[in-house]
């Protein structure tokens, strides 16, 4: 029986070297995996198919006026208004339909905010509130409305949805011209109608401020188109 070497079965003093060799072999395996992955031979993770719809980014053109102005070049944005246009409130005519993607300038102000704004009559403060204070008011637009808001009385019955009785009620509430009506919010007008009596509660003042804004700016053509749209929507 041969005596066993005292270091038999172990790596003896070569343990550190063995460990280094194993570590090097491990790293070599990882490196080869990475190389094969980069070469696309194996280990390449399959990329998930991007099903997200990609929209073409276009730079909108801000134009004055409505869809009837200028050449038909898509896309375009209409004149900034204190009342945001929505697809439902945009005039639709057969002769000049708006082209290009529908772009809204901003979301309509929440109705809850209008409750807190009761009593505010300044047009500028109203605009600053609806735009978050970031969008300056166009000087010519503001000046025009300030000039018109000199206490004169306008015929509010020219606006669709406002009859003689409703006009009288609005006059009693201090709304005597288009500029003043344009500064009112929907909730404020609805509150006036509710306090006027049950016969006024069925009316919907949603479009009145925008109509009044167009009338205050003497944009009668656009107002006529908008009123035609309102009437066509009611008869459908």
């Amino acid at each position: 029986m041969t005596p066993m070497h005292p270091l038999a079965g172990t790596f003896g003093s070569a343990s550190l070297t063995i460990i280094l060799l194993l570590l090097a072999a491990f790293l070599a395996g990882m490196l080869s995996c990475q190389l094969l992955r980069l070469l696309g031979i194996c280990c390449r993770p399959r990329r998930a198919v991007n099903t997200e719809t990609v929209y073409m980014s276009v730079e909108p053109e801000i134009t004055e006026g409505g869809p009837e102005t200028g050449p038909e070049t898509a896309p375009r944005m209409y004149t900034r208004s204190i009342y945001s246009e929505t697809p439902a409130s945009r005039p639709r005519t057969k002769s000049a339909p708006p082209s290009g993607p529908r772009i809204e300038l901003r979301k309509p102000a929440p109705l809850v905010e209008a409750e807190s704004s009761a009593g505010r009559s300044s047009f500028e403060s109203r605009v600053q509130e609806m735009t978050g204070g970031n969008t300056p008011v166009a000087p010519n637009f503001r000046t025009e409305l300030e000039i018109r808001d000199d206490g004169q009385e306008d015929d509010l019955t020219r606006l669709e949805g406002i009859g003689p009785n409703t006009s009288r009620l609005l006059n009693e509430a201090g709304i005597r011209n288009y500029a003043r009506l344009a500064t009112m919010s929907r909730d404020e007008l609805r509150h006036i109608l509710e306090t006027g009596g049950p016969q006024f509660r069925v009316q919907d003042p949603k479009s009145w401020p925008y109509q009044a804004e167009l009338a205050a700016r003497n944009n009668w053509d656009r107002l006529r188109e908008y009123q035609e749209f309102l009437l066509s929507g009611k008869t459908r």
Binding site: F26, A28, G29, M30, C33
Partner: peptide
Amino acid sequence: AYVLGFLFCY
């Protein structure tokens, strides 16, 4: 060790 390193990366 080489195979283990490869599988680890994989």
